[in-house]
Amino acid sequence: MFTALFVMTGIALVLGAGLGFASIKFKVEGDPLVDKIDAILPQTQCGQCGFPGCRPYATAIAGGEAEINQCPPGGEEGIRKLADLLGREFKPLSEEHGVEKPKSVAIIDENTCIGCTLCIQACPVDAIVGAAKQMHTIVASECTGCELCLAPCPVDCITMEPIAETVDTWKWRYPVFQIAPAALDTARQEA
C-alpha cells in the first residue's frame, strides 16, 4: 500500500514540476487572440468603432466588451472573418457606427490650405507632409482613408476621393449569375 502511495506521489511531483517548468518556459506574452483579431481589422485607426484605434477595439472584442459589427471600413467581409474566427453568429454592420464606403484617399486642396498642421497631428499613419505655414499634401499611397483629418481642418480644404479602379487592381467578376427575384420582373412588366 505504501509503495502505491509513494509511486502516486512521485508521479504527481514529476508531472507538477514538468507543468511548472512548461508554464514558465512557454509563457505566452500578451493575448494571441487580440493579435489574430487585430490582423483582420483594416488598420485605418479611424475610431469609428468607438475605441481609439484598431488594437484597442481588438482587445475589447477579445474581452467581450464590444460587438464584432462595429467596424465600417472592414465591412461585411471583415465581420464574416471575425465571426469565423470567434465562432460567433454573423450580424450586419451596426448603423450607429457608420456605413461601408468605397475605399478613398484624402485630397488636400492646396490653394485653400493655410498650413495649420492640425491635420498632420490628426493623421494616425503620418501620411500628411508639411510644416507650419507651409502647404500640406497627402502621401496617397500611405493614406488609409480614415477621415480623421477632415474634422480638425479649420478651412475645410480636405475632401475624400474614392480610389479609381486600374488595370492592376481590376478584378474578374463572380461568374455565378445572380437571378433577379421574380417579383421584380412582374413589377416591371406591370409598370
Partner: peptide, 17 residues
C-alpha cells in the same frame, strides 16, 4: 493580399507614430 499588405503597413506606421 494587397489589402493585407496595406493594413500591415498602416499598422507599422501607426505604431511608429
Amino acid at each position: 493580399e494587397r489589402e493585407k499588405e496595406a493594413a500591415d503597413a498602416a499598422r507599422d506606421r501607426f505604431e511608429f507614430k
